[in-house]
Design a protein around this nucleic acid. Structure first.
Length: 986
RNA sequence: GCCCGGGUGGUGGAAUUGGUAGACACGCAGGACUUAAAAUCCUGUGGAUAGUAAUAUCUGUACGGGUUCAAGUCCCGUCCUGGGUACCA
């Protein structure tokens, strides 16, 4: 072989993929004598579309880290698997009649084929698939552990339900009161507990279980016939399909993640996630600290509890607002207002989630006729209801302070309610001011205090008077865990007397029953409800017709990789202990709230129950940016006349579209038309082409005129692969679709220029670039390095093939460093020069630091600089080339392996050791100091690096440069920063 | 609206965290090899002005101010843009 040619690359890469498999070099053992390193990718959902160039970005990065850590001497766990349950496979089944199990396996095989070509060092023997019964047996098992747990608030950790029963038997609910005020049984004594019947006991325990069944408001999507999680609803419509979503009460499984809100929040301080990721999670958890305050209702036995973060504003309360769904609404409404309230409640009920979303700014509400008393100043304030107060947050009731809260202010203005000013000039009468810095006025005992400080004082007073207390609230809700779907994990429970009972471990997995009916039953039950024999499998015993969400399988898969074939436990404790936390987790930021929170939750529960020694799963998280597509458009003119034949003829016929060619105008012409600045020349071109085509038709004995409407061009997405930059390859375009075979173009400067846009990669935009194409042209090594070279890993960027040649050329230069033109090895054994060693060690140091910092784009640059410099030094010495090849191997494993073999090694390069750098080759003996005079750099002077400040000062003072600028006088000031710059001020 | 990011040549992006901005690569221009093209190699390449030239000077990191001997980097304000979130009291 003579060259690193495109044909040769294919052979080399194929050869090494075969070798790696044959030698099983990626097989990882749980060898606890070695230091471990766990690099994890977010496992993909195997969609039917296959991989595009965006998917491997994170995988390449993690693969580089894995290979790097391996040659650094770590035992590296770097597995891959598939998040294989999910809605798309089920919808595909509905549309095409192919069973999800089959389409999923096909897709997985395709993914594995594509991934295999990129040269990843996954240990496929550890592959997991969430839809595999041997896997989901343990998903179900962990679910049952959660079901069998409750959160002990005193200890802030999960415990077994059996512990709770013991507590109830001893002291009832004394130290662990029932939290749910709507539950029919309230707090009870030990004796009462013992007296409850079995069903009541189970119902009570259900109020505590971390996985529990309850009637909850769920997002019901009629069109999909299923319930959606909050994160699957976007702006009131479904995430997939964009169908309307309404609230509906259903008996659902939920995970009591809210109990862990505080620990999930605190845990963020200990883990290395990007600040923006932490912010997203913090916002999602939405902790707010404030107070709960009780307002008694005039002439009534009832009182209203409100939550506020601003108890300092209590003297500014002008009215109260409670949620329309609040339980007190009916009871406090007086007769005079009843009609108004009923009308308003009807209105609220009629409003769908989308209406509410769309009309956030609309102010609505109704007066109940009731009044509450301000506990501090005794003033009576009206109680209103309005949908801007949410039943689900806080207590579902607020105290309204219009001078300080924008919504309260608007409400007050709208209904002409009085506004008390407690912040003096900070309130201008037009807009509320939510400041905390104002000095309080009209505020009783808080007068004269800064609001910020008054918060604590007010809370203290509330607690003293027994009318309120400090309170923390979270935005986060419990996680709905039931899905009305077929393709998911069945719930491993049996209903007896309407209460769920855990199945025994020996009965797991509860396998998904075979079915070819995936239609939801439509009444809120899932497709499994169609299998009545399976649901009612025994007398008086029923199964759950729902399945778990895809988050279930993904909430713990990183643990299964540690010991994937274990049949007696989800993983061996020794393996769990050894591999421990994931050292680096790489994936997209779109999983910020759902997947990552659930994975953290499951880990914490398993930790509390004693199965894990760590309670955060991911030590470090890297979010790779999205690679977007760069779409191309052509602009098609619309036709005016569709007919041929004599113009006045009554028997007009449609002209054959073949004889009526599509006409496309170049981008600038289109833009001028759009803006209404089309020139006469532009219009002339369009008329001319119509005339030309008409003439052609007439010459073929057809009649009629062909005209195109210049004001009416339509952009069309076209395949990005038939465009060169922005210039359309018209020949390829004509071949692309039969309809365009006889297309005509209106050029500008002889070229057809396409429009462009950055959009997500999608088949329907024809902007998808498959890694297969790139690998065919350049090989996997070039693809890998190029994807890293595109820019910072975490930045989103559009895909562009511009520049890939540079990376390819680089690899060829590496090749040529070691081969002469005839393709023979030209490495020699001579001692390297100091200069050569400097180039090498500088590179090693930089690359090592860059990999540790996940800054792969700069390490690729560093390699390029190194090879350029070695090239100009004509260096082909083994002592330089060999370490370079090893350092390069994480990035371009195939070529590195090939060169390694040629250099005479018979073990895989993975067995090599990452070279160490030696500072002695990096130290500069002199340093070039820029001399700046009055802030302008005027000269460079060389000094020994270790020269003392004073010496430098003397030399600079004596130098011609300074004399020239000071005309011999000594400067006013001189600053010497060792190793940096000398500044002289005149 | 609120909470985070980010605005650097024709392009993707560097800049040791306050120290000669534009590394590396693409593109472009010129040159070498070639009958020619492709490929390859070499040279130049932020802008402006002056000079035959090497070069010199000025200007320059979205915009306007500020701190500093020194600002892409820090502070204040404005504009644009990407993401998260949305009546959360």
């Amino acid at each position: 072989m003579a060259d690193y040619s495109k044909e040769e690359i294919k052979n080399i890469e194929q050869k090494w993929r075969n070798e790696w498999e044959k030698r099983a070099v990626y097989k990882v053992t749980n060898d606890t004598s070695m230091p471990k390193y766990y690099v994890l990718d977010m496992f993909p959902y195997p969609s039917g579309a296959g991989l595009h160039v965006g998917h491997p970005l994170g995988y390449i990065a993690s693969d580089i880290v894995a290979r790097f850590k391996r040659i650094k001497g770590f035992n590296v766990l770097h597995p891959m698997g598939f998040d294989a349950f999910g809605l798309p496979a089920e919808q595909y089944a509905l549309e095409h009649g192919i069973h999800p199990a089959i389409s999923t396996q096909d897709n997985i095989n395709n993914f594995k084929r594509q991934l295999g070509k990129i040269g990843f060092c996954y240990d496929w023997s550890r592959e997991v698939q969430t839809c595999n019964p041997a896997y989901y047996k343990w998903t179900q098992w962990i679910f049952l552990q959660i079901f069998d747990s409750w959160f002990n608030r005193k200890k802030e950790k999960a415990e077994r339900i059996s512990e709770l029963i013991k507590i109830f038997e001893k002291e009832g609910t004394a130290s662990h009161p029932i939290q749910n005020s709507k539950f029919r049984i309230l707090n009870f004594s030990a004796a009462e507990w013992i007296a409850f019947d079995e069903k009541s006991k189970q119902e009570i325990l259900m109020q505590y279980r971390l996985a529990y069944l309850a009637y909850t408001d769920v997002n019901w999507c009629e069109a999909l016939g299923t319930v959606l999680a909050n994160d699957e609803v976007i702006n009131g419509v479904s995430y997939r399909g964009g169908f309307p979503v309404v609230k509906k009460q259903m008996r659902q499984w939920s995970l009591r993640i809210t109990e862990y809100a505080d620990r999930l929040l605190k845990g963020l301080d200990e883990i290395d996630f990007s600040e923006s990721m932490k912010d997203i999670q913090r916002n999602w958890i939405g902790k707010s600290v404030g107070a709960e305050i009780k307002f008694s209702i005039l002439n009534s036995q009832f009182s209203i509890l409100v939550f506020t973060t601003r108890p300092d504003t209590i003297f500014g309360v002008d009215f109260m607002v409670i949620a329309p769904e609040h339980e007190l609404v009916k009871q406090i409404t007086n007769d005079a207002q009843r009609e108004d309230i009923e009308k308003y409640l009807k209105y609220v009920e009629s409003r769908s989630e989308i209406d509410r979303m769309a009309e956030v700014k609309k102010i609505t509400g109704a007066f109940t006729g009731a009044f509450a008393t301000n506990p501090f100043n005794g003033i009576q304030i009206p109680i209103w209801i309005s949908e801007y107060v949410l039943a689900g947050y806080g207590t579902g009731a607020i105290m309204a302070v219009p001078c300080g809260d924008e919504r309260d202010h608007k409400f007050a203005k709208h209904f002409k309610l009085p506004i008390t000013n407690i912040i003096g000039s900070h309130y201008n009468g037009v807009e509320a001011n939510p400041t905390k810095e104002a000095i309080l006025e009209n505020s009783g005992f808080l007068n004269g205090m800064v609001m910020r400080d008054a918060i604590d004082v007010a809370i203290q007073k509330l607690e003293e008077k027994g009318i309120g207390k400090r309170q923390v609230n979270y935005k986060m809700r419990d996680a709905g865990w039931s899905r009305q779907r077929y393709w998911g994990e069945p719930f491993p429970v049996v209903f007896k007397d309407d209460m769920p009972h855990a199945m025994k471990e020996s009965e797991l997995p509860l396998e998904l029953p075979p079915s070819d009916n995936f239609k939801p039953s439509g009444n809120g039950e899932g497709p499994l409800a169609n299998l009545t024999d399976w649901i009612n499998f025994a007398p008086n015993e029923k199964r759950d017709s729902n399945t778990m969400p895809t988050h279930a399988g993904a909430a713990w898969y990183f643990l299964r990789y540690m010991d994937p074939h274990n049949t007696t436990a989800f993983a061996d404790p020794k393996a769990l202990d050894y591999w421990n936390q994931v050292d680096v987790y790489i994936g997209g930021a779109e999983h910020a709230v759902a997947h990552l929170l659930y994975a953290r939750l499951w880990t914490k529960v398993l930790h509390d129950l004693g199965y894990l020694k760590f309670d955060e799963p991911f030590k470090k998280l890297i979010n790779q940016g999205k690679i977007t597509g760069d779409s191309r458009f052509v602009y098609r003119l619309l036709k005016k006349s569709h007919y041929f034949g004599a113009p006045q003829s009554s028997s007009k016929k449609l002209i054959d579209s073949e004889k009526f060619p599509p006409v496309f105008i170049s981008k600038d012409i289109f833009e001028r038309i759009e803006k209404g600045t089309a020139t006469d020349e532009d219009k002339g071109l369009i008329v001319n082409i119509g005339n030309k085509l008409s003439e052609k038709l007439r010459s073929e004995n057809e009649f009629g005129n062909v005209e195109y409407l210049p004001e009416n061009a339509q952009p069309l997405h076209i395949d990005v692969n038939i465009v060169n930059g922005l210039e359309l390859d018209t020949a390829a375009f004509k071949k692309w679709k039969p309809d365009f075979a006889n297309a005509e173009f209106i050029y500008e400067d002889g070229k057809y220029i396409c429009g462009s846009a950055i959009e997500k990669m999608s088949k329907s935009y024809f902007n998808v670039v498959s890694p297969d194409e790139i690998i065919n042209n350049y090989g996997a090594d070039t693809l890998r390095m190029y994807e890293m070279f595109l820019g910072p890993l975490e930045a989103s960027k559009p895909w562009s093939t511009q520049g890939i040649d540079g990376v390819f050329k680089f690899l060829r230069k590496v090749w040529n460093l070691i081969h002469d033109q005839a393709g023979n090895l030209k490495v020699n054994e001579a001692e390297p020069s100091r200069e050569e060693l400097k180039v090498l060690h500088k590179t090693i140091k930089k690359v090592e630091q860059d990999i540790e910092n996940f800054s792969f784009n700069t390490s690729v640059s560093e390699f390029m600089i190194c090879v350029n410099e070695l090239g100009s030094l004509k260096c082909n010495k083994r002592a330089i080339v060999e370490p370079l090849v090893v350092a390069l191997s994480p990035f371009a494993p195939h070529i590195a392996e090939e060169l390694w073999e040629k250099l005479g090694h018979n073990e895989s390069i993975l067995a090599a050791t990452f070279p160490k750098y030696d500072d002695q080759y990096l130290v500069e003996s002199t340093f070039s100091y820029p001399i700046s005079i009055n802030g302008k750099v005027r000269a460079q002077m060389e000094f020994a690096l270790d020269m003392p400040k004073e010496e430098i000062e003397k030399i600079v003072l004596a130098s011609e440069i300074v004399h020239k600028w000071t005309e011999g006088r000594p400067p006013k000031k001189m600053i010497v920063v060792p190793g940096r710059i000398v500044n002289v001020v005149l």
